[in-house]
Amino acid sequence: MFTSREGVTLDSIAAPLRRWLLNPVLTVPAALVLSGFATATPNTDSIKFLVPVCALVLAGVLLSLNDYLDKQFANNWVSDNTWNWDEEIVVVTGGSVGIGASICDQLLARNSRTRIVVIDYAPLGWQPKQEETRLSYYQCDLSDSNALRSTCERIRSEVGHPTVLFNNAGLVRGVSIMDGSYGDIEATVRTNLIAPMLLAKEFLPEMVKRDHGHILHTGSLSCVTPPALIADYAATKAGLLALHKALQLELKNIHNAPRVRLTIGIFSFIRTALISGHTNVPNFLLPLLHVDTVGEAMVSAVYSGYGSTIYLPGFNRVASTLRGGPEWFFRILREATANFRINFRGRHEVDSQTGKILKA
């Protein structure tokens, strides 16, 4: 009950407590029953429990109200009941391994008829468990805008117009701004930020025309608390967050497509080939996330039919909130990243002059 793929963590304990102790559906009736007992028999112990139960009711109502408002504002107060996962076309960038492979696997587990298109430079590193799936693979260096444009044209021609886009592909070089090459920076920015923008540009017109679709971005806590050695990577993730927020307003106010959904995940370190090592932070507070934990959260978001911001672990929400607090306090929090023992070199080989990806 209190465990997860990452072990016993703050999230694994807080989630069930939230479902039970801070659930107004459960706490309001309990408060009413205790109130009735306290009124009928004033000298009983029920009065002792009434105050804490009422406090739980108030906290639960406020949290539920906040969740409701978050959901409605993120989705323009409109629903979309037209989702048909036999007909949806889902594009997953970086879908050959890691988070992308987990997303594909979980999509197929939910509905093996869903058409999935994987775009990646690396060869497809997995095979569907289900029979007769509709899976397509397109090899593409996403840092090359011409190759990206050509690949998108092929997808529309050969598969159809995508209705879901997982902007998941990314790379990290793990060097300081001064020590990194031109190629390191250019490959990182083109793959992690420019490619998601161009992919959105390619596939959004049909989504807007239908007022139906969902774009999901794999973000990072580094956009809030960037550690040393990944300044370029963190900058792209901050840009991805800005893209997410700007698109929310553009879709609603400029393109009149309030039902096209947008989701971004603010994730801490994930056990993928991009990093190795440990954070020197207690696993209870900031665990290294399993790829299936992230994939599950992203797929659950798209299946909900609503856009959202996903914070994993939940501490990331606190860190994001603290960003608006006193600068000195937030600096102390950021200084803690100096204790990380993480190798950010990743798996990619990049041409140091041109930024062209040589090996993924």
Rank of each mutant, 00 (worst) to 15 (best):
A336E: 05
M178N: 13
G265M: 00
I99Y: 00
A38L: 02
A242T: 15
P162W: 10
I270L: 08
T321M: 11
L165M: 11
F330V: 05
S112G: 10
I275S: 07
P313F: 14
S320Y: 15
K237R: 13
V8H: 06
P128D: 06
Y311W: 15
C152M: 11
S268G: 09
V159P: 04
L216S: 01
N81F: 09
L107Q: 01
S64H: 12
V92A: 07
W20E: 01
A59G: 00
I270R: 10
A246K: 12
R149D: 04
S79Q: 12
D292G: 07
H244C: 06
T354A: 06
L65R: 09
V118P: 13
N81L: 10
V302L: 04
E327S: 11
I99S: 00
G183C: 11
T337C: 15
A31C: 02
K356F: 00
I264A: 01
D351N: 03
N316A: 06
L285S: 07
W77Y: 15
L358H: 04
A228E: 13
V164A: 01
I103V: 13
A200W: 08
G277T: 14
A59F: 03
R345N: 07
L221F: 10
F269I: 13
D105R: 14
S35M: 06
P42S: 03
A59I: 03
D11A: 11
G277A: 12
V224F: 15
G170A: 14
V299K: 01
N192T: 07
L34W: 01
R173E: 08
